[in-house]
Simulated scan of single mutants.
Amino acid sequence: MADKVYHLKCKDHLVSGEEFRLEQLQDFDILETLPKPENLSAYYESDAYISHTDSSKSVTDKIYHAVKNFMLLQKLKWINKVAKGNNLLDIGAGTGDFLQTAKRKNWNVEGVEPNEQARKLAAEKGIKLQQDLSSFEEDSFDVISMWHVLEHVPNLEVQLKELHRLLKPNGVAVIAVPNFKSFDAEYYKEYWAAYDVPRHLWHFTQDGISKLFKENNFEKFETKPLVFDSFYVSLLSEKNKTGKANFLNALKLGLKSNLKAQSSSEYSSLVYFFLKS
């Protein structure tokens, strides 16, 4: 990956209040968060980091979990249509809800989650998660999913090589990430919650992620929108920008983003389906 061009400066609104630069890679339509903190795990140490907890304290938490529960079966339906077998690995499995849903639908499931507290919560649901990928053999899985996880990994090329190693021939990688070409991203700019620096180390467009995977021996064959994300991200972005939730503003902005995306295809978040080649 070649030289970088300055794009935007963003603040960590969750933990530290520190500022980070987003710099665009010249060869890819992808942004990188700089500088990368040496102790990145410290930036996840917050009760408000909801994917590592099952917290439902605030109204925002309740909305998050309601949408998540609705989408678990939808995600599985998408996967069922493209999978050639029923061995599934979920990377960045959080507290194990997606794998629990898949297991109930007769999938053979494995998962990876670096966060110890999240692994404990998953274990209470009967889902045993590994800390890393080292215990898995090559050509083991028909499907590998990463739901809003690829943006967190330190090294993209290393991660994609691991995906390629672990997938069976004609296996499918299912990758969900935010899209900084969406209307809500362009509207909120540095306050856009899906930048989430420095926890999000990378920021993608449709062209950028497609080129990245193609250069690592994957072919994109389908894309699906995550239409609820624009509302949730707008809600968090309003709080970043004004210090208040502003539910009505967030609802209007999320709806406007989805309506614009019907013609542009630039939804707030997208799910990409890649075939191992």
Rank of each mutant, 00 (worst) to 15 (best):
S234D: 01
E222R: 14
V233C: 06
D196F: 09
F247C: 04
L226F: 15
K224Q: 14
Y191K: 06
N258E: 14
L248E: 06
F204V: 00
E219D: 15
G254Y: 07
P198G: 10
G243A: 09
K252H: 06
F228P: 03
D207G: 12
S230W: 09
F247P: 12
H203K: 04
R199F: 08
F231K: 01
F228H: 05
N240I: 03
S257P: 12
T223F: 02
S257Y: 08
A245V: 08
E215G: 12
S263T: 13
Y232E: 05
K239Y: 03
H200T: 00
K244Y: 03
N249D: 11
Y191V: 04
V227I: 14
Q206D: 15
W202F: 15
T242I: 03
K211W: 00
S230C: 01
N258D: 14
S210L: 14
N240S: 09
V227F: 10
K239T: 05
F228K: 00
K220Q: 15
T242R: 03
F228L: 09
A193W: 00
K239Q: 15
K214C: 06
K241S: 06
K241Y: 10
N246R: 07
T223E: 14
P225S: 10
N249F: 02
Y195V: 02
E222T: 05
Q262H: 11
A261V: 04
K220A: 12
S230F: 11
L248T: 09
D207A: 15
N249Y: 04
K244F: 06
V197P: 00
N216Q: 11
T205I: 11
V233W: 12
N246K: 10
K241H: 12
K252Y: 10
S210K: 15
K239N: 14
N240T: 02
K214G: 07
F218R: 05
K214T: 09
Y232M: 08
Y232R: 03
A261D: 11
R199T: 01
Q206H: 09
Y195E: 04
K241N: 05
K211A: 02
E219Y: 07
L226D: 08
N217T: 10
V233P: 05
L253E: 10
A250N: 02
L251V: 11
V197Q: 01
F213T: 08
A261G: 08
S257C: 08
Q206S: 15
F204L: 05
L212F: 14
W192L: 07
E215R: 14
S237I: 05
L201C: 12
P198W: 10
N240A: 08
K241V: 07
T223L: 12
Q206K: 10
A245I: 04
S263V: 14
S210F: 01
K256V: 04
L248I: 13
D207F: 08
G208F: 00
Y232T: 05
N217F: 15
A194M: 07
